[in-house]
Nucleic acid binder design. Sequence first.
DNA 1: TTGTAGGCGTTATCAG
DNA 2: CTGATAACGCCTACAA
Lengths: 345, 345
Amino acid sequence: MKKPATIRDVAREAGVSVAVVSRVLNEGTGPVAPTTRAKVLEVIEDLGYRPRAAARELQQRTTSTIGLVVADLANPFFARLADRVVWEARARGVHVVVLTTQEDPHLEAESIATLIERSVASVIATPAGDNVDKWARLIDLGINVVFVDREIDQLEQIDVVTIRNDVSAEVATAHLIGLGHTRIGFISGPAATSTGRDRVAGFRRAMAAAGLSVDDELVHHIPFRGDNGSDSVGALLSMPEPPTALIVGNTAQVRSALRRIKQSEIHVPEDLSLVVFDDNPWTELVSPPLTVVRQPIEMLAVHSVDLAVGRAKGLLPEHRRRIEVDAEFVRRSSSAPARQSTPTT
Amino acid sequence: MKKPATIRDVAREAGVSVAVVSRVLNEGTGPVAPTTRAKVLEVIEDLGYRPRAAARELQQRTTSTIGLVVADLANPFFARLADRVVWEARARGVHVVVLTTQEDPHLEAESIATLIERSVASVIATPAGDNVDKWARLIDLGINVVFVDREIDQLEQIDVVTIRNDVSAEVATAHLIGLGHTRIGFISGPAATSTGRDRVAGFRRAMAAAGLSVDDELVHHIPFRGDNGSDSVGALLSMPEPPTALIVGNTAQVRSALRRIKQSEIHVPEDLSLVVFDDNPWTELVSPPLTVVRQPIEMLAVHSVDLAVGRAKGLLPEHRRRIEVDAEFVRRSSSAPARQSTPTT
DNA sequence: TTGTAGGCGTTATCAG
DNA sequence: CTGATAACGCCTACAA
């Protein structure tokens, strides 16, 4: 266990000053004679020298690290987002510190504190909805924040990358209406989240456009964590007049909801048409393959990293940016025409 | 965008020296009068002061950061591993820098270099199999390395956390043999990986124990990435005498394999019994629900973090540790008794 | 119990 | 083109 070589070791060994070594390390900082440069590079190689990140960060103001704050990586949506973010970041030479919050505002606050300590250049996050002041403080400290997927209304100055949630829900709803469904259930995220609200808004808009009224009992706002998807499905199916179609607009609860449906006597799509917000390869492997609203995760990630890194390098226009990407509606076999409406018992 | 307060600001504001502030920051470093401590804490709160991580790391030798090197987060196995690692690490007050390699040795080497620069305390990794010297160098620099899931034989001094791959495969195979199958296909990972080899070894052992010979054409070593699972299944099913049972021991290829089976005319489990290495909630939502070898990801993560953090704090015995955990065999409906063996066409 | 001063490894400023 | 040298923010002997 030998201690790592420092820039001084390299300088001595190469017979030059540390300043010169520093210059060959960060090209463009200053002039270096070709011969000297070669010599230095050779020594660096010999000693296996690597500049110490901590020392750099200390004297520069910023870091080549960005923080990624998501609820949890066990959720395929976040996992894939994280995967792309890490990948895109690497391509730009920056590292990613991943923090998970389990949708817990307290943990989120803690994560924010951590990111401040690490003086990251930027952070990409899917905010839970609270901690408005904490996020604001981050901005205040000059740390660039990019909200992805979700957003917080009060924080208007923060960059946002999101899918068109309302439109996506609208399309999904219109699809079902077109199939003759009139009683449609909608399971969404918490009303405190932008996605939870926007999707329901789109749903209502589509219903209204078709001249259909919405039975509020059919609209469920449920948390992302836990097994509420199952409960919601249970409640919906045991209604005196159950819906003939269901949209699960809460990606994290799709599995839970699906499990409950499988356990019941309900057949999809004969008894219940199903559309879910999820782009998970497994959705096409279940029976029947699910009609889905596929979120373009890659796009979300790319844009987020672009903003995060771009801001850090200060080469983006001052004003806050809001990037919306379209989700893709993929019709498969879980949605089908409504049966002749049978009068209530 | 005001610049962050430093320890000096706090000291001045509190009317004490930086040493005192430092002491209240790291309790136990030295004595501080209760009143002074209170005053300092108050100022810290007021100024929203946060010690700068880079400065700390610079003068201390080590970091409170560990690196996690996995192939990609889009793979649910790694995603869940990462999730637990991040979580367990947080519980111990350390951060995680996640790096992905896409199973590419070159990217892996790059990741290793990065981790050296960041002078992380430890790294948890699923090594691709090459880069033996690079990993060794990490050790040489005093950075603790923990291999999880896979390992590299030449690196005997490195801590390892893994499931009992051979036994798991043996159990799965014995299960199928018990159901009357004699021609069993096995799709495994690359022969260059420990998991790829060990699982096949277990498979062969079980076959031998039952007095069955193994047709080498039925054993496929395929990469983790790409769509080879589908190809393998295709090849297997189009053999003159196809297997009546199949074990997919390459988690990353389960989906690909499954998709191909669904596309074919083959019925599971009537025509083909199926057992896969995967613990993914979706495996029980497909039809039929899959019989699986469930990897205890949480255990792998916990032990890895324990080792990584424990080593970093130097409170673990010198000698290298090797932790093996049992995988859980979960029988569901994709495996069934073999039909009366029909003679070859 | 508290304060002073030196150093951690780099980069940046300014003379040579 | 190259070389001293002063920060960067924090910890830690060593003094007081």
